[in-house]
Design a protein around this nucleic acid. Structure first.
Lengths: 254, 254
DNA sequence: AGAGGGAAATGGTCGGACCATTTGGTCCGC
DNA sequence: GCGGACCAAATGGTCCGACCATTTCCCTCT
């Protein structure tokens, strides 16, 4: 049997490209197309679907944007089915946050709520090695924040890794995903806050202590420290808001 | 001045369509294209970008999938910029959940965490009218669950509205969004659970009491009731899991 | 004045052609 | 015999021109 099933029906319903996209998506979701499996070439599908090549290409473009396909050029190229990663959701969230310009306080509120849960889950389910690794990362973060050389990129990266490591310890993909998504929507606002010396100092110490509390399986203390972390963040934020509403020294008056 | 700025540059960089998509997206995100504002027609953009119409169409298709555009036919049709709604994120999440078949317990865990925060925020920030409306909805839900006529659609709809109303009272768009997204990824698993009589009865009573606790500004009691809600859900779930692992009566053996 | 129809604008589709990239093999020279 | 350079095929990426379907608006006819 060369082809047990036609796999695709020659379908047209006004919006041919949408119909094609739906059929391919259905095939992927139903498992008829395994991840990393290659779809027929555009010119083959053009005949299978009984439609023009443009419609096929538009369908593929939509599915690629959706994160369901990976498209490569050249011979051995083509459309490959793939599992949708957390990146696509993160992008959607980032767009949403930017367009609706959600107040930073709303993000902080949500993140605090998540972190409060995350920390107890991490204590309950994280391995001893993971907890120790978290402590190491937090100490590295602390060292990085304390040195005068403000490597903003590295700080942001470490902060991100720290949060993701914590989320990973919870052993719940939803939390991991939401953290990934929030990092993408958050970074644009946030990392300039590390410029404030007092915030930098306190945050460094707080992260390290939080990690230690987790390693020592002290959930209440860890939660308390998380609360303090966000208290710092909030005060720093309101300070900045006050500063920008009555600016004595403009940052750039050319 | 007919066109103060060209708005789009004739750009080609190997992947012309991606370049086009990036430029349009940038224009939207920068506010150069207000929501509900109409983009030039495909044939006009074809000239502005100095590219073929196919590339334009593929770019538009991708942006539409991303939720940034709304495309209509006919004269006065064309591509209209629009704010990305919570639906697109919800779709991404639903895909993710389906493909990675996340355990229902993970979803329950996350939702419980969110609800615990939601309930105190709703008490703190919800208006008296909103709280009363929540009580009314919960009582309607209760009545609906108690009558023998199992209108599954209506039950699902009421459950969804109840959760969304609660999320809306928190006055934090992030919570509202996450609830919307979860509803989409959740419904497929969940609503069959209302078939179990004992779960239906307890849930009805619990929701009503939770709403009353919120209306009476009793956060601790409300949290406690939320916890009970998920305790019920968990026991019901484990019961079903046990039943399906040793099925005495198969649901459909044709 | 009202209703109907047709013109125009626009997205949706098709077919063919050509270009760019990647792969793999093949051929030539050493 | 081996290695590197070159070429052919497969495939996505793009362009062009044409036509169809849908929607809106206006014009004409009654």
């Amino acid at each position: 049997m060369i082809t047990s099933e036609p796999l695709f029906f020659p379908a047209k319903a006004g919006r041919a490209s949408e119909d094609v996209a739906l059929q391919i998506e259905a095939a992927i979701m139903a498992g008829r197309l395994a991840p990393e499996e290659r779809l027929p070439s555009e010119r083959e599908m053009q005949q299978q679907f009984g439609t023009g090549r443009g419609a096929i290409r538009e369908a593929l473009r939509a599915l690629k944007q959706k994160g369901l396909l990976d498209i490569r050029k050249g011979v051995k190229g083509g459309a490959y089915a793939c599992k949708v990663g957390m990146v696509s959701i993160g992008e959607s969230l980032a767009l949403f946050l930017k367009q609706h310009d959600v107040a930073p306080s709303a993000l902080i509120e949500f993140r605090e709520s998540v972190d409060q849960t995350l920390v107890v889950l991490a204590i309950a389910r994280g391995s001893a090695e993971a907890k120790q690794a978290l402590v190491s990362m937090a100490e590295e973060f602390e060292a990085c924040l304390r040195q005068d050389d403000h490597d903003v990129d590295r700080i942001g990266h470490l902060d991100r890794d720290l949060n993701l490591a914590l989320a990973g310890m919870a052993a719940n993909p939803i939390f991991e995903w939401i953290m990934q998504a929030l990092q993408r929507g958050f970074s644009s606002h946030d990392y300039t806050l590390y410029d404030t010396p007092v915030y930098r100092e306190r945050t460094a110490a707080n992260w390290a202590e939080t990690a230690r509390a987790i390693a020592e399986n002290d959930p209440l203390r860890a939660r308390s420290l998380i609360g303090y972390h966000y208290a710092i963040l909030r005060s720093c934020l309101s300070e900045r808001a006050a500063a920008s509403s009555s600016p004595r020294v403009s940052p750039d008056d050319s």
